[in-house]
Design a protein around this nucleic acid. Sequence first.
DNA 1: AAAAAAG
Length: 497
Amino acid sequence: MRARTIYPDNLMNFADLGLSDELLAAVTDAGYSEPTPIQASAIPSVLMMRDMIGIAQTGTGKTASFVLPMIDILAHGRSRARMPRSLILEPTRELAAQVAENFEKYGKNHKLSMALLIGGVSMGDQVKALEKGVDVLIATPGRLMDLFGRGNILLTGCSLLVIDEADRMLDMGFIPDIEEICTKLPANRQTLLFSATMPPPIKKLADKFLTNPKTIEVARPATTNTNIKQMLVPAPAQGFKKRDLLRRLLRTDDVGTAIIFCNRKTTVRELNKSLKKHGFRSGEIHGDMEQPQRLAELDLFKRGEINILVASDVAARGLDVKGVSHVFNFDAPWHPDDYVHRIGRTGRAGATGTAYTLVTPEDAENVANIEKLTGQTIERLELSASPETAELEEPRTSSSDRARGDRRRGGRGGDDRGSRPDRAVPERNAFEDAKPAQPRPERGEQRGDAETGRRGRHGGDRRDREDAAFAIDGVEGDGGWNGPIPAFLSATITISA
DNA sequence: AAAAAAG
């Protein structure tokens, strides 16, 4: 018999947790055999209908810890029109969709119906599902309240409630909504609350709406685990220089799949546009996009059609994409919590990951806060000062990159914009299956595209600045120059902030 | 300061 460690409260095998055979089959099909610590402790007590506080974030197996027992609980009994039997509240639409996917995956051997109630998509299908009757509602608060107000939902049959990512709900100002929703549910119900942290308002919420809950706490993966290699990279403040630095990082490191976080939606758009222009297979996600497109971009990323996702903090928490090898913070996050969540998109399920954070001088305070929160000093990636020795790599990296850098830097200087036929083609793209880059359009063509047409209404000033940025990109970017920004560029081109 | 969520 194979030796195995038995932890108190952790039986280390799904079959020991009291789940049904159909469910175990689905779990096996999904490729899991051993429960994570939170699953091992949570599943039996949820099956016993106890209230629960789970102090954990995704990446710990949190979602399955409530989805699995819920499926077994709901397997008995039948749904009635407009009377859903359970409700899961999520802070963002993508997380709600992700939980719905989990229900489909694990519930494939059960006849359970569910409705995904999120904003940004038409209500028609959601209303239809509600009229037929659903076992599980998975919702963001806004759309749920909206449908409730229209009389499309009765919550009196909802005897199981999950409040997921409660601290995020707090950040987003959802707590009053949550409280109101709780009052519409029957008092005699089972409530599960999950949160990465337990700030006082969440504690209060739990005291008010949970009864004798069992509290389960698992370590926060991003702050404690060592499988994410973290690095700070000194960066210039100007956008185009930062983009150049980022491209060098993308090419130097063995980037397979990466999420690049920016602090602003406009930066997300600009960066993705620039990366695509430079031949990277990238996409974007942020709250100003149409919801179907948000989901479509995420789907492209999950399927590997694109390997870079430029994102706002909408994607910072809970998003579970397999095999993300790198997280880049194009902007250092303002809140240290966000840093922890962002880098937690890599190094998931025991894999290793790398997180780079570009740091401008103005970010010093934010970085100090991050190091304070995580209790560790993050290694600085030092960039050499002169082009002759400049190399963007860690000290242990081989010298092959150095040779390449020198070769490609040879004989450059002055404004030779446009003189290199290959300048738009990434010469050393880490992505082997990357599509060959399109040649850079002439400036005249750029102005003619749909994008610039729309930009026109912002006035000429902004458009010219933006074009200038791209033109500069062409010079110092993919033409093969790997050193720091030369003085002549910094001196002659100023892009005002 | 930003982003997120109901149009």
